Computed example of a mutant assay.
Amino acid sequence: MFDQPEVMRTAQAMASHAALRQNAVARNMANADTPGYASRDVAPFDETYRAAFGGDLRATRAGHIGASGTFTAEVRERDAPGTRSPNGNSVSIESEMVKSVEVKRQHDLALAIYKSSLNILRSSLGRG
């Protein structure tokens, strides 16, 4: 049976990662004035994806050992010693705005990869 191609699974994971990171950035900006709030972020996509799907052995079918096909990333408190404001808050609006642009670029890239993959698949089926 036809399974989801690797490139589409990667694009889907990249878009999910971008959404999770955008949520963390938005939460940081919303709590920029909250005393004691620690800035949060998500690990870079390549590290998270390699941890979920990388490794020496590769599962190419659902029956293979370790072929879970799941991608998970989590929001963690960011380590930034010495950058806290007097009220204990570690959010920098400027850095959050830069991260927001990075996240938009990552999401746009994921959508472009997905769209290109669909166009190639449609062309190969003669429906392009």
Rank of each mutant, 00 (worst) to 15 (best):
D41M: 04
F71C: 03
H107L: 10
F53M: 01
K104I: 14
G82T: 09
A24G: 04
S90I: 01
T83M: 14
D79S: 12
A30L: 11
K104Q: 15
A112M: 10
G82E: 10
S124Y: 06
S90G: 05
Q4T: 13
A19P: 03
E74Y: 06
A62D: 06
F2W: 06
N31L: 08
V103D: 01
Y37T: 03
A73W: 01
E6M: 15
M29W: 00
L20K: 03
A24P: 02
D41N: 06
M1L: 04
D46G: 11
V103F: 02
V103I: 14
I113T: 08
M14S: 05
L121H: 02
G126V: 15
R127S: 12
S116K: 14
H64I: 07
A32K: 01
V98K: 01
H64R: 12
A43I: 07
A38D: 08
S39A: 10
R127Q: 14
R61V: 13
V98F: 06
S16D: 15
G82W: 08
S39D: 00
M14H: 06
A19W: 06
A59V: 08
A112S: 14
A52S: 15
P35I: 11
V42A: 04
R21W: 03
E102I: 05
D108V: 11
A19S: 15
I113Q: 01
S117G: 15
D108M: 15
E77F: 02
A52W: 03
L121T: 00
S124F: 08
N23E: 13
P86N: 08
P5Y: 00
V103L: 05
I93A: 02
I65K: 09
M29Y: 04
R27M: 09
P35K: 05
A26H: 12
R58K: 10
A19V: 09
L111I: 11
H64K: 10
D41L: 00
R58C: 05
A43D: 13
D56V: 12
S123A: 12
S100P: 05
F53W: 03
I93M: 03
A67M: 07
V98I: 13
S123N: 09
V42Y: 00
R58S: 09
K99C: 02
T72L: 10
D56T: 13
N28F: 01
I120E: 04
A13C: 14
G55V: 07
S39H: 00
S123C: 06
L111D: 11
F2D: 01
P44T: 10
E94V: 04
E96N: 02
S95C: 06
E47V: 12
G126R: 11
R21C: 00
D46K: 07
S39R: 00
I113E: 02
G55K: 05
N28Y: 00
E96H: 00
A43K: 06
Q22F: 13
R105I: 15
Y49T: 10
G88I: 11
G126W: 13
H107I: 06
N119D: 15
A51Y: 12
G36Y: 04
A24I: 03
V103H: 03
N89I: 02
A43T: 11
A38K: 05
Y49L: 15
T60E: 07
F53H: 02
E96Y: 00
N23Y: 07
T34C: 11
V91S: 00
R122T: 13
T34N: 09
N119E: 15
P81E: 07
A19L: 12
R105P: 11
M1C: 05
F2E: 04
A59Q: 04
A62R: 01
G66V: 13
A26W: 05
R27S: 10
R127W: 11
T34K: 04
